[in-house]
């Protein structure tokens, strides 16, 4: 907040409080007790007159107390422009405190499963209900509530794994995240349009879906130059690199000619964000159990 607005707000707030204070005392008469006087305000409407009596004491002091409360509050808490308050209270600090309280409270619940082996954990109904809730809150935005993914987000319920579906790899993926990178035109940046058509047909032929058998045959040569380093000679991919298996029915970006052509032409960049600094180790352990259970019923 700029100095001008800071002063603007402070002047209005303090001015109002002291204005009320002045009004209270200025209108208060010399009487100090709750007594009724014969004195009137001096006006009369159809014979109806108004007495000029002070506020009852309790009421008067309530107003005074309200003003004092306001001033004390404004001294302790941030309320006057840029004034930070004597207590140093901020929204962030309060939020952090509440997060800490929640961790202290729920940490134990997660901790009871912290050392259970993941395959065993995936059979535990209570833990999996917890896992389902963790998944719904942290993972379902991309992978879907049912874990079936969508374009660009892997399906976790099938047997196709980019990096591997064993417990340790799932844990590793959750903790540190993954960076998927398929360069445009693979390792052959000078690929021609014809060669793109050929290699796409060759890739389709792995799962017997080639549109043009001739092109597919020609594509084997392009594949050997552009793709084999990561996807392997037989197209089964490489989990160490996160290179997908091209021979199965699982396609992260679609299995049609157009989709694959786009993938070859422009490459793919994908990120699985690391959860290690967002969630506790125990939470990640339970989540790994839940992810494991999705494909290992």
């Amino acid at each position: 907040m700029s100095t001008f607005w800071s002063i603007w707000i402070s002047v209005i707030v303090l001015g109002t409080i002291f204005g009320c204070w002045w009004l209270l005392f200025a209108t208060r008469k010399s009487q100090t007790t709750d007594t009724e006087t014969e004195k009137t305000m001096g006006h009369s409407f159809d014979g109806i007159e108004e007495y000029d009596n002070p506020l009852p004491k309790w009421w008067f002091y309530l107003f005074v107390a309200t003003c004092i409360f306001g001033l004390v509050y404004l001294a302790l808490y941030p309320g006057l422009g840029n004034w930070q308050g004597l207590l140093g209270w901020t929204q962030e600090k309060q939020w952090e405190q509440e997060v800490q309280q929640a961790e202290a409270r729920y940490g134990e619940i997660y901790a009871q499963y912290g050392s259970t082996p993941i395959p065993e954990l995936s059979q535990n109904g209570d833990a999996m209900e917890m896992g389902q809730r963790l998944f719904a809150n942290n993972c379902s935005v991309c992978h879907g509530s049912a874990g079936r993914g969508s374009v660009g987000f892997p399906n976790l319920t099938d047997d196709a794994w980019l990096y591997g579906g064993d417990p340790d790899t799932i844990l590793e993926t959750l903790h540190n995240g993954r960076q998927g990178n398929m360069p445009a035109k693979g390792t052959m940046p000078n690929m021609t349009a014809d060669q793109v058509d050929q290699v796409v047909n060759y890739v389709l032929s792995f799962s017997n879906r080639a549109q043009d058998e001739q092109a597919a045959e020609a594509g084997a040569e392009v594949y050997a130059q552009a793709c084999v380093a990561c996807h392997g000679a037989d197209g089964t991919g490489n989990q160490a690199l996160g290179a997908p298996n091209l021979t199965d029915d699982s396609w992260l970006y679609g299995s049609t000619y157009e989709w694959i052509e786009e993938t070859v032409l422009y490459g793919r960049q994908n990120v699985m964000p690391a959860q290690g600094d967002r969630l506790s180790d125990d939470q990640i352990h339970i989540l790994a159990g839940y992810v494991y259970s999705l494909s290992n019923d």
């Binding site: 379902s140 509530s145 987000f153």
Partner: peptide, 8 residues
């Protein structure tokens, strides 16, 4: 689900 509209 709000993340994805639909998938094939």
């Amino acid at each position: 689900d709000r993340g994805a509209l639909f998938s094939y």
